[in-house]
């Protein structure tokens, strides 16, 4: 489980948009998993089980707080790895734009974006993790990506044009 923590943190970060909340979420998920380890079925993917637990905890937390939306703390966005200062700056802007764009998505849509597009899970694995049919994964994810893209296009046009003109 320790080896899986970085991936789980990334998933939690994608859901919550906040580094501190992500760590709290991961901690809660690990506690839940370890105290309910008998519920994990051998032969199924441990990662999917952990993603599902994390997703459910996040939904519970959101409900209990009656939160109206996810607010991303852009200051908590980790600095991307890289040696070129310009790339670092643009990378940060783009990552921040993605996180901002994800605010408008539903929890289910956000989870799918993180699982499939950031974690690289297959549609089948995502369906297993979120316990929905694969057709639902595809339609929901496609819709989420179109919504996200609609918010990203203006953001990507700025820096990328700027970058082109510098070359």
């Amino acid at each position: 489980m320790v080896e899986f923590l970085p991936r789980l943190r990334r998933f939690a970060y994608g859901l919550s948009g906040d580094a501190a909340q992500a760590d709290d979420l991961v901690q809660d998920a690990c506690v839940r998993a370890l105290t309910h380890r008998d519920q994990w079925q051998p032969g199924t993917k441990f990662e999917s089980w952990m993603f599902r637990i994390t997703q459910n905890l996040w939904i519970d937390k959101r409900r209990s707080l009656k939160s109206k939306g996810v607010h991303h703390d852009l200051d908590s966005v980790p600095e991307p790895s890289g040696t070129d200062g310009r790339d670092v700056t643009e990378g940060r802007l783009t990552l921040a734009a993605v996180m901002k764009g994800m605010e408008g998505l539903s929890d289910d849509q956000r989870a799918l974006i993180v699982l499939v597009c950031i974690e690289g899970a297959s549609y089948k694995d995502a369906a297993e993790a979120l316990e929905v049919p694969i057709g639902t994964v595809m339609s929901r994810l496609a819709r989420a990506r179109q919504l996200l893209a609609a918010k990203l296009v203006p953001a990507t046009q700025g820096p990328s044009v700027s970058k082109e003109t510098q070359r």
């Binding site: 320790v2 923590l5 991961v26 966005v77 980790p78 991307p80 990378g91 950031i118 609609a150």
Partner: peptide, 26 residues
């Protein structure tokens, strides 16, 4: 739109988080 939000775009973006080690307390 689908290409812009594909794995080949988003996954590297989140690489900074992926590369971060988990906190010791966790």
């Amino acid at each position: 739109d689908l290409d812009l939000t594909g794995r080949h775009v988003l996954k590297p973006l989140f690489g900074a988080i992926r590369d971060q080690p988990a906190p010791e307390h966790l």
